[in-house]
Design a protein around this nucleic acid. Structure first.
Lengths: 89, 89
DNA sequence: CTGCTAATTAGTCAATCTACTAAATATCGT
DNA sequence: ACGATATTTAGTAGATTGACTAATTAGCAG
């Protein structure tokens, strides 16, 4: 899970808002999409970036996909930034 | 200083590496540029994004411009992310 | 298996990003 | 004022992003 993907995922306000919503509780793609004035395919692409970064994990429940926040990846990126390890930056 | 500019500035590995270098000590644009296989104008554009985000401040010393890390802005963004304030993110 | 709902994938387009080279600006020393 | 050095600004090209609509896939109910 390259750390670069995490920072790129965090670079868009919609994706940060998705993370904020998921912090309250897991939500389906449709429920999340209802919080934004954007089409579902557009949101789906945002979800994909968050998934690729490992910031969220997805679980299928019948026909709906439920997204969960993965705090550990976020904390990893934050600690990397705080410590400014030379490793990857 | 919109928080969004901070996250966008952090989204590029070269800019994160610049911050890591400045964490050691302030450096001139030229010295920073020497650490990357990129043209000076390209680095100058990266510096501009870091400046716009408030992550670095610049001080002129004769003919050279010396960049300093501005940790407080970085910590502000991090704490916002850790706390996940609904405010902006 | 047909139809219905949930969500993603495909395809497109305008805008932004990142790199480059060439030109301009700023400061210092003579 | 001139020339040298440090850095940015201007202009350009190719790649990526973020939005949309239309089409596809996945699962469930009858």
């Amino acid at each position: 899970m390259p750390i670069n993907a995490v920072f790129e995922a965090l670079a868009h306000p919609v994706r940060r808002q998705v993370l904020a919503l998921l912090r309250q509780r897991p939500m389906s793609a449709g429920e999340l999409a209802g919080h934004f004035p954007l089409s579902k395919p557009t949101l789906s692409a945002h979800f994909a970036k968050l998934r690729d970064a490992g910031l969220v994990v997805v679980e299928r429940q019948g026909t709906t996909l439920v997204y969960h926040l993965n705090m550990s990846i976020l904390e990893e990126a934050l600690s990397g930034l705080l410590a400014f390890r030379e490793r990857d930056q």
